[in-house]
């Protein structure tokens, strides 16, 4: 374990407390580069859309054939022919476009999406992602578009709690759940820290409610503070 102390690097703790789901979504939203084309996964990642600012000019993609997806539809806006990947009624924004499923997945698979944000069961030290199947014998497997997103987007951000309900780290040396993609995750946003993953191991950009040393005690892979330029 090689946690550097804050005295060596300057503190990277940016919050006195762990981040809640909405604070985390706000942080992810802030980190999305202006003008990006983005796909938000089902569940927690969907919250990110609540915090995108109009001046960021972000275009949201939904796998079922649309760019320019707007907020969830309410009341009279609900149209059964206009839904998102989670099958929730949504709206269209000016400049939206519709296309068939092979084109929609070519947008992912052809490397045209800038960022996708996904939930995860586990992320490995080298950015392997496990988020689609527990592998339990009685579980019905369902993969949807997760493997295409993980493999195709230029950047794959994961949003998750750092620890399972049992207190085990979801950042692991090697995933024990079935993989979604190999070496695909570039950043992991958790309640306790933001991690940068890649071939060089796991770097920590910032921590919330803990020091890097305290974080290292929770995570079974070597952590280093990211260079200031990465923060």
């Amino acid at each position: 374990m090689s946690a550097q102390t804050s005295s060596e690097t300057g503190s990277i703790q940016t919050s006195e407390t762990p981040l809640g789901r909405d604070d985390l979504a706000r942080l992810v939203a802030k980190d999305i580069r202006p003008g990006s084309f983005v796909n938000l996964g089902i569940g927690q990642p969907t919250l990110v859309s609540n915090y995108l600012e109009p001046e960021q000019d972000i275009t949201l993609h939904t796998e079922n054939g649309m760019l320019g997806m707007g907020p969830e539809a309410k009341g009279d806006e609900i149209d059964e022919d206009l839904i998102n990947a989670g099958k929730i009624p949504v709206t269209e924004l000016p400049g939206a476009s519709y296309f068939h499923h092979a084109d929609s997945f070519a947008i992912m698979r052809g490397g045209h999406l800038d960022i996708c944000v996904l939930g995860a069961f586990q992320v490995s030290a080298t950015g392997d992602l496990a988020n689609w199947h527990t592998g339990a014998p009685d579980a019905i497997p369902a993969v949807g578009g997760a493997m295409d997103l993980a493999t195709g987007a230029k950047d794959v951000f994961v949003m998750m709690t750092l620890l399972t309900r049992d207190g085990a780290s979801k950042i692991v040396e090697a995933c024990t759940y079935p993989l979604t993609g190999v070496g695909c995750v570039t950043r992991v946003y958790t309640d306790k820290a933001v991690f940068l993953t890649g071939p060089d191991g796991v770097q920590v950009r910032e921590t919330f409610g803990c020091t890097l040393e305290e974080l290292q005690a929770l995570v079974p892979v070597p952590l280093t503070a990211a260079p200031a330029v990465e923060r």
Binding site: H101, A102, R109, M147, G152
Partner: peptide, 23 residues
């Protein structure tokens, strides 16, 4: 779910983009 758990239906699970591209 019921048919699958009863072993009464076969499942070929395909990533969605592979499903679309194979079609």
């Amino acid at each position: 779910d019921a048919k699958y758990k009863a072993g009464e239906i076969e499942l070929e699970l395909v990533p969605q983009g592979n499903l679309a591209e194979r079609i």
